[in-house]
Design a protein around this nucleic acid. Sequence first.
RNA 1: GCGCCUGUAGCUCAGUUGGAUAGAGCAACGGACUUCUAAUCCGUAGGCCGGGGGUUCGAAUCCCUCCAGGCGCGCCA
Length: 588
Amino acid sequence: MPIGPLKQHLLKKISEACREAFQHAAGEMEIGFPPDLQLGHFAAGCFPLAKALRRSPAEIAKTIAAGIAPDDVVQTAAAAGPYINFTLHPRRLFGEVVAEIASAEDRYGDARTGEGRRVMVEYLSPNTNKPLHLGHLRNAALGMAVSRMLAAVGHPVVKSILINDRGVHICKSMLAWERFAHGATPQSAGVKGDHFVGKWYVRYAVESERDPSLETAIQEMLLKWEAGDPQTLALWRRMNQWVYDGFAETYRSFGMRFDVFYYESETYKLGKDVIAAGLQQGVFARDERGNTLFHLPEKDFGLEKNGLTKRVTVLRPDGTSLYITQDIGTAIRKVTEHSLDASVYVVGSEQEHHFKCLFAILRALGYAWAPNCHHLSYGMVYLPEGKMKSREGKVVDADDLIAAMIELAEEEIRRRDPEQRLSEGEIRRRAEVIGVGAIKYYLLRVRPAQSINFDPAESISFDGFTGPYCQYAYARIFGILEKAGRRGLTEQKADCGLLGNLEELLLLKMLIQFPEELASGVAEHNPARVAVHVFNTARAFNQFYNKHAVIQAENPALAAARLALIRATAAVLKRGLALLGIGVLENM
RNA sequence: GCGCCUGUAGCUCAGUUGGAUAGAGCAACGGACUUCUAAUCCGUAGGCCGGGGGUUCGAAUCCCUCCAGGCGCGCCA
C-alpha cells in the first residue's frame, strides 16, 4: 500500500466512524500533517463536517476518533481540538513509503496528469550581438527546470529557442568589425566568439558617440541586409556563426539543451498572411493612417481614458511586420510543426503586456490551443549597483560567473583533499557539478515572480540554503551506503517497524511530500517548490545524521531499516536536484 | 493617469487554493569532530506578516482602501 492508498485507508476509517455516529458521509475531509509530529503522523480537520452536522468541529473530532478502532495500519486515532490525529504502525508507514520509492527507480513523484499533451517550452531568446549574461542564466535555469518538471508529470516536451539574429543591433557589431577589426577573428584574437562579437558591438557604441555618420551607415547596412546583398549576408553569417560557436560552449557548460532552433531571420516575415485573413474576418481593423490593429478586449485590458478600447498595432502601413506580427506567425508555426497542445514562453516580466496581447489575438483568431499558451514570467536580476544594462557594461557575464563558481568549488575541493589523492580530472568534474549547481540553485530557489538582488557574496556561498548543501547530503548518504555495502550490511530484510524516532519521522514526512510539491510546482510553473523541498529533505537528513548512527546502530536490524530509509532519501534528493538540472556527486 | 508584480526577523527569502504555536538561510552570540564526510548539527537572540478597515468559528493568506518600490501601458524588440 503506497502512500496514496494509506491516506485512503484513513479516510475510509473516518468515513465509517462518521456514518456510524452521525448517519452522515464524511464528505470532503482531507488528510494532512499535524504541525508537530509528536501529535501524530497524519491529521484530519473536521471543519467541513461542522455545518452539515451542526456540531462543533471539536465535538465531531472527539466522536469520530472514539469510533475508530486500531487495525494493522492505524495504531491510535485521537482527537485534539477540531483535529483527529492518527498514529500509524511504523512498519507500514515507513515500509510502504520506502518500498514505493525503491520501486519507482528514480522516477518517484512522477505523475500522468499531463496525459501526453505535448508542450513546447521556449526559453533563452538571445541576441547575436553579445554574450549571455546572468539574466540569461536565470531564464535558462527556469526553462530547463520547467521542461523537466512538465516531462515528469507526463507531458512530451519540446524545448525551443528563438534567436534574435537580425536587426539594427546586429548590424552595429558588423559595421564596427568591418571598420576597425582589420580582419581579426575569434581565433586570431584568442577570444570566445560571442565575446569577440560583443566587443565590436561595444566598440560601435563608443565610435558612434564621436562620429554620428555611423548612424546612417547602419541604416544603409540594414537596407542591404534586407535586400539580400551577398556581401552583407556573408559577413552576417560569418559573425553569427562566431557567436553560435561561443554560445554552444555556454550551453554545454550550463547544461542547456534545445530540440528546435528558431531564428528571427527566418520567422520575421511570418504572420502577415494570418493577419490578412484576420482582417477579412474582422478580427483586425485599419486605422486612418493605414496601421492594421487589434482592439484589445475590454474585459481583460480595460479602456483608454477617453473611453475607447485599447489597441495594438500588428502591421505597419507599409506592410512591414512588428515584433508581435512575427510572434503570431511563430506561435502558429510551432503548433503546426510539432503538434502542440500547449506552449510555455519563458520571458522576463517586462514583456507581460506583450504576451497578454499575443494570447488575446490568438484567441480572437480562434485557435483552440490559444488558451493553453502560458507566459512564464520572471523578475529581474538586479546587481548591487542597480539594473543590469549591457550597453553600459553593467552586467554579470554568464561565462565569467560560471568559471568563477567552478574555480571556488575547486579551491574548496582541494582544501578537503590535503593529501592530493584526487586526480585533476576528478577535481574538475566535481567542481563543475558543484559550481554550476550552486548557480542554478541560487537562481531557482525563489519563485519566478520574485526579482533577485544578486548578492555576489551570498551567491558564491556553499553553506546553508544552497545547491551544494543538498548535494552534500546526497554524498554523505552515498558514503554510508558504500561503507555498509563493504561491511556486508544490506537492507534486504529491514524491519521498518524499528523506525519511528522524531528525526526519522521528519525525514519520512519529506519523502511523502515530494510528489505533492512537484505537482504544485508544475501547476504553478514554479521550480522553487522543488528547490525548497529538496533543501528541507537534505536538512531533515542532516538532522537525522547528526543524532543517529546508521551503520553503528544499536543492532543490525535497526541498521538495515535505517539504510532503507536513507537510500530512499538519496533517491528523492537525486530526483529533485535532477529536475532542477543539478547533478549529484557520490563523494564531495 | 491606468494595469501587473512585490512588501513577512538586521539582510535574502519560504509560507498566500483561509486552519493547530508564522518558518528557513545568512549575519551575531554560545556550544558539538578519537565516531557513517564539520560544505554538518544543537542552542540563544531576533516579528503590530507595509498601515488601516472589512468578511468569519478562524486571515500572512480573501475583499476594500491607503503607503512604498519595481515593471509595463498600439504604430521598438
